[in-house]
Design a protein around this nucleic acid. Structure first.
Lengths: 192, 192
DNA sequence: GAAGGTATGGTCTCAATGAGACCGTGTCAA
DNA sequence: TTGACACGGTCTCATTGAGACCATACCTTC
């Protein structure tokens, strides 16, 4: 029942929340907030708004002088389409593409030492993201408005996600042969 | 430094592990084992092997009668390319595309009740995957060969991942306004 | 006040992937 | 003997990926 691709709703949603914008500004906001759960290339953010304007969901206001910026406003049709999408709880499955998991899956075909190097890199990477999300959460004003809460919720999931992955890769690095089974024990509490 | 796309290495890896195969068999194995961390459309699995044969990494053996199957064998060059890829610990970032997180992010622009319906669906979905991975793990022979361990490791990550997400969405469903902060408390231990 | 760096703002192209329609062959059971 | 179903594959069109390329404005520093 989704009428448009998710990236289209990202554009509608950001304009609905922050007001009329140029593709350039969309790009910055996507990079800041949305990249972690829906990556969009910058070129897409120049392709999509004109297309949505064509469909009547946005209205373009073009500068003809200087930087010739293209500013896109939300129309009532756009707002309605966004509301319909938000009201539909039936979403497609999430997709993950993780080359590191791929390498781990095929690790038995390579040298046993590869796995340790891989796991160390991955653990460091996930720890970095974890620290990043944690600090963003700390900076977040404990404001009671619903926008802050939206952001806070997603940051919380980011923290849970990165923590789980960081701990996983650390356990692989520590015990590449995986002779015991750390999954049944609670995280962060190594057995005595 | 990756010479080929990850999907190419999936093909090489599966043939390296299980021996020469048809695209049809590749399709089945990808669906069973690889889909969760690297989705590949079935059409891709008919496009990629001929291309890798062109590059000398596979060798095609075509039936000319009956079902006219195309069986692809790994060459020494293919085995070497796979080993080089596995030995490189420097992998691209993982990418996630989760429409549900997108809807949650923009939830403040919709009706407050949407969020509960969304969260309930997501919680159920992740619980289902969690049960699936858990049962696959239980069925896994505790064999000491490295192939079984590869599979077991990934299933463990799957379990951790689905558990984190299931608990997250359950907490959203239970408390959509998110007035408290469940992240600092250990999972599965609701406060008194 | 000219030179260069950087942020702003955007267009374009080619390749690759996504999404799925469509088409045959063999096997087995009713 | 025909229909269902698993097997095995090809094809096409639209969308996205990846990144090169271009121009304007501002800001510093020599």
């Amino acid at each position: 029942m989704a009428e448009y691709s998710p990236a289209r709703y990202v554009v509608l949603g950001l304009i609905a929340r922050h007001g009329a914008m140029t593709p350039y500004e969309l790009k910055a906001r996507v990079e800041d907030d949305i990249q972690p759960f829906w990556p969009i290339l910058h070129a897409q953010l120049y392709r999509i708004p004109p297309e949505l304007a064509q469909a009547g969901l946005l209205r373009e206001e073009a500068e003809t002088t200087g930087r010739r910026r293209r500013i896109f406003h939300l129309t009532d049709a756009g707002r309605a389409a966004l509301a319909r999408w938000l009201a539909d709880p039936d979403t497609p499955e999430a997709e993950t593409r993780d080359p590191a998991q791929l390498k781990l899956f095929f690790a038995d075909l390579g040298d046993p030492s590869d796995i340790v190097a891989l796991a160390n890199r991955q653990a460091a990477r996930h720890r970095t993201w974890l620290a990043h999300y944690t600090s963003l959460r700390a900076d977040l004003a404990p404001a009671e408005d619903s926008r802050q809460r939206s952001r806070a919720r997603l940051l919380r999931l980011g923290v849970l996600h990165e923590r789980a992955h960081a701990e996983f890769w650390e356990s692989i690095a520590a015990d590449p042969e995986q002779l015991d089974d750390p999954v049944s024990r609670p995280p962060s509490r190594p057995s005595p």
